[in-house]
């Protein structure tokens, strides 16, 4: 099919089998290899992207399911060469070790902050429950999300 959608803010048009996984479309056809494949079965969250602002597992999404939609991947987080506050915070709290799970955590956390800019620690933990990390033990990641949330709120407060 001729698939049209928006990817990281830009319109994209590609020829793709409608039953191709979004994960393969992103990584292999479009060269966006930030999105990772862990389990391929919905259990690890490494492949999380946002579709119309909601978290989605790209390993369980077919190309035709994003027709006309707005897809955001980890490559779309940094703006103008500057890391997103979530990315900065993850570096600061040592929430990244091998980094394999990081894009998935970033996208899930980004979706959380869209919905709830001021989450509690417990809410962050519960929200990230679908993302697995073999290295960090999660607390640093939760710290990073809380730190980024605070900075984003302060930024917003300063603007208005």
């Amino acid at each position: 099919m001729r698939l049209k959608f928006r990817l990281n803010g830009r319109p994209v048009e590609v020829e793709v089998p409608p039953g191709r996984r979004l994960l393969d479309l992103l990584r292999e056809d479009l060269g966006l290899i930030g999105t990772k494949e862990g389990c391929g079965e919905g259990e690890c969250g490494a492949c999380t992207v946002l579709v119309d602002g909601k978290p989605r597992l790209s390993c369980l999404t077919l190309a035709l399911q994003v027709e006309g939609k707005d897809v955001l991947t980890v490559e779309g987080l940094a703006q103008g060469g500057k890391l997103h506050p979530l990315q900065e915070a993850l570096v600061e709290t040592a929430g990244v070790q091998c980094g394999f799970c990081t894009p998935g955590f970033l996208m899930a956390a980004y979706a959380l902050l869209l919905e709830n800019p001021n989450p509690t620690r417990e809410e962050v933990r519960a929200w990230l429950s679908g993302n697995l990390c073999r290295c960090t033990g999660y607390e640093q990641i939760v710290d990073a999300v809380l730190l980024a949330a605070r900075r984003l709120r302060e930024e917003k407060g300063a603007e208005s």
Partner: peptide
């Protein structure tokens, strides 16, 4: 599930 599973 998780938020992503619930959104899908």
């Amino acid at each position: 599930g998780s938020p992503a599973i619930r959104a899908m």
